[in-house]
Design a binder for these strands. Structure first.
Ligand SMILES: [Zn+2]
Ligand SMILES: [Zn+2]
Ligand SMILES: [Zn+2]
Ligand SMILES: [Zn+2]
Lengths: 145, 145
DNA sequence: GTATACATGATAATGAGTATCGACATCGCA
DNA sequence: TGCGATGTCGATACTCATTATCATGTATAC
C-alpha cells in the first residue's frame, strides 16, 4: 500500500522460518495460512500453526508477501509477489490463479476523489476477480453447478 | 457488480424485518450487525441477533444495503445506500463517515485489464479509506480557515 | 378459520485468528 | 567451544464473528 516501512528489525533465522519462506517462494497462488501449514506437514516439517500465522503476519509487515482479505470468504490468503511496489491483483475465483496488475489510473483517480471530498491520507483496497482463460475453457460443455 | 439477479422471491413482511429496515433507513454510516442489533434493543425491539444477521444478509442479496468487509477488522459493516447502482465508498477510518463515489474510470480500466489477461466474468471490490475533513481538523487541534 | 410454508430466536457449533507461557534455539561474546 | 540473554516456537486455551439447529411462532393463501 504505502511502501515506507521503517526497515523492520532483523529476525533470527530458524528452521521454521526457512521452511515457510521456501514454500512461499514455490507456491504461485494465494493460499491461506492453514493451506500453507498443510503443505509444510506434507513435506515433513512439523511446524505449529501459530508459527505459520506469526511468520506470515511478519512477512506481510515487511512487504515480503501480499495478503488478500476480500474475495468472498473471511479467510486471509497470502502469496509472495514479484513486484514489491504497490499493485493490485486479478484473481481467478475458480482456480486461484493470480495476475499482478498495475493501475496508475486507479491511483490518480483515488487521489482526486479524496481531494474533492476533503479527505486526507487516503489509501485504497481493490482486487479484481474473474474466471481465467483456462477455467473458462474447462467450464464449457459442462453444466453449471 | 453483475446486475442480473433472478428477481429474488418475495419475503414475508414481519415485525422484525420492518424494524430492521427502519433502522437501516435512518442510520447513515456503516454499522456492524451487532451495532444494529443494539440499536433495535434500545428502541424496545426484542429481536434475536440471528434474525438481524439473516435479514442483513438478505437485504445485501437484493441490493438494499451495501456491505464492507475490508477496512481493517474482520467484522462486516452494513449501510443503506442512496444509489442502488454499482458504486464505491470513501470511508473515514476515524469516524466512519462514508461518501458514495462513482468511478467510471475504474470500471473501464477493470474491464480492459480483465480482457487483456483473458479473464471473463470479472467483478471488482474496491473501497477508499482516509481521514475526513472534520477529523483531520480535530487531529490538528485547530480548524482550517 | 385452517393449513402450511416460512420466519424467528435461544443456543450450540464452527472456524479464523490471537494470547499465553513454559520449553527451546539462536547468536553475540568470552 | 561454552554461556546466557533474548528471540522464537508450539500446544492449547481463548475470543469473537458468523452460521447451523430446530422447536416454536406467525404471515399468507384458500
Ligand atoms: Zn501482489
Ligand atoms: Zn482459473
Ligand atoms: Zn471522520
Ligand atoms: Zn466499480
Amino acid at each position: 500500500m504505502t511502501g515506507r516501512e521503517p526497515e523492520a528489525s532483523e529476525r533470527r533465522s530458524t528452521r521454521q522460518r526457512t521452511a515457510i519462506t521456501a514454500v512461499m517462494t514455490e507456491v504461485v497462488d494465494f493460499r491461506s495460512a492453514r493451506q500453507i501449514h498443510a503443505v509444510l506437514r506434507e513435506r515433513g516439517h512439523e511446524i505449529g500453526l501459530a508459527t505459520v500465522y506469526r511468520n506470515l503476519h511478519d512477512m506481510e509487515q515487511r512487504g515480503e508477501v501480499d495478503v488478500l482479505r476480500a474475495g468472498g470468504g473471511d479467510t486471509a490468503v497470502y502469496r509472495r509477489c514479484e513486484r514489491h511496489e504497490h499493485h493490485h491483483h486479478l484473481v481467478c475465483r475458480r482456480c486461484g490463479r493470480a495476475v499482478e496488475v498495475e493501475g496508475p489510473v486507479i491511483e490518480s483517480w483515488a487521489a482526486r476523489v479524496a481531494r474533492d471530498e476533503g479527505f486526507s491520507e487516503v489509501t485504497h483496497a481493490m482486487e479484481l476477480f474473474g474466471t481465467c482463460g483456462a477455467c473458462t475453457r474447462a467450464e464449457r460443455g459442462r453444466p453449471r453447478p
